[in-house]
Amino acid sequence: MTILVTGATGFLGGVTARALAEAGHEVRGLGRDAARGAALERDGVRFVAADLRGADWDALLAGVEGPPVEGVVHAAARSTLWGHAADFHADNVAPSAALARACARRGVRLVHVSTPSVYNATGHTQGVREDTRVGPRFDSLYARSKWQAEEAVRAALPDATVLRPRGIYGVGDTSIVPRLAAALRSGRLPRLTGQEVWTDLTDVRNVAHAITLALARPAPGVFNVTDGQAIPLWATLDRLADTLGVPRPTRRVPARLLEGVAAALELGARLHPDRPEPPLTASGVRLLTRPMTLDLTRARERLGYAPVVTPERGFADVFAALRGGAA
């Protein structure tokens, strides 16, 4: 199968592109970073330099120098809790809609990677299902843009598979673990709750596995993806601190107080002409204090999904890489 992977120079896109190439598919990895593109080429992925904004999707799917594309994995996105609404629309909504329309015109299978951040403002936190009513309120511009992208994709291509992986981590992660590690090393991270927070996360290899399943069988609709086993977040943070050789968080700060401080910082940033990213966001605080588990019934029954990596194995690999200086 000839597969185009967007965001191939990023974390999830890179792992997915390499896994598909290793499985024998002809993979074209779309991205902007030439150095990472060269690394993809060494691993059997043909690098295609392109920007999501203004991309000629029909030409990319036609395969100018090779067979036409049969499947697309859209893993590229602006993934941050802060930014300008126009940028989120330009990077997340518009390209997703244009790509879905091109796939519809050419009869190409599409796996669109979204996020369970769309659930954050619903009030549902345990065993959240895909049919949970979402919107019109969202807790971040990112979540809103990803929901709008989902809506655009489903409108253009009803047969598309939309995946919502929760909290992607793993060796090579550029977001979750590095941010937490930086906060622990600086000593800035207080203990925000006296109770454990049980939450779902997803090893990047499990996401790549779900994507592979979605390419292999017709599975229209939306699917939650996780490791299938909630982790104790603060106990895991303690293990991370031990691995880094830094003190565990002990200074207690009420979560509500810190969330209020974050909201004030956000207001100040929004009033600033340049809208700089504040050092703390309310949605970021909530990620550390509010549990979230997702129901996997639909993914298990319709995709045949079962996690291939447990949280124990996933974090053991991450901690081993940290000790070896590779993450």
Rank of each mutant, 00 (worst) to 15 (best):
A255V: 06
V27C: 07
G135D: 15
V253R: 03
V204Q: 01
F47C: 10
L60I: 14
P311F: 04
R251Q: 09
E130A: 15
L240C: 03
A230R: 14
V285E: 02
T310F: 14
P278V: 01
A21C: 12
G228K: 09
G24E: 06
E41G: 10
G325R: 07
T174I: 13
S145F: 06
V113Q: 08
E312V: 03
R144G: 08
V5S: 00
I168K: 04
D173T: 03
W57D: 10
E196H: 12
D317F: 04
G83M: 14
H84I: 13
T293M: 02
T236Y: 02
R275I: 02
W57R: 13
R185K: 07
L20N: 00
G29F: 03
S175K: 00
P116Q: 06
L60N: 12
L12M: 03
W198S: 09
H84R: 15
R18T: 04
T297W: 15
R144F: 08
S140R: 04
V285L: 02
R248L: 06
A321E: 13
A181C: 02
G260T: 08
R133N: 12
N224V: 08
D317T: 09
V171Y: 11
G123H: 01
T281V: 01
D131I: 09
T289A: 11
G54H: 08
A98N: 12
P68V: 13
R290D: 01
W147D: 08
E151H: 05
D159A: 15
L60S: 14
R46I: 07
F138M: 05
D238W: 07
A21Q: 12
D227G: 11
L267T: 07
N224C: 09
I176K: 06
P307M: 14
V197C: 06
R32A: 03
A306G: 07
G172I: 13
A104W: 05
A155C: 12
R78N: 11
Y305S: 01
L296A: 11
P254G: 13
V253H: 06
R217K: 13
P307G: 14
Q195G: 13
L30K: 03
S117N: 02
A269E: 00
L287W: 00
G221K: 15
A156I: 15
S175P: 01
A327P: 03
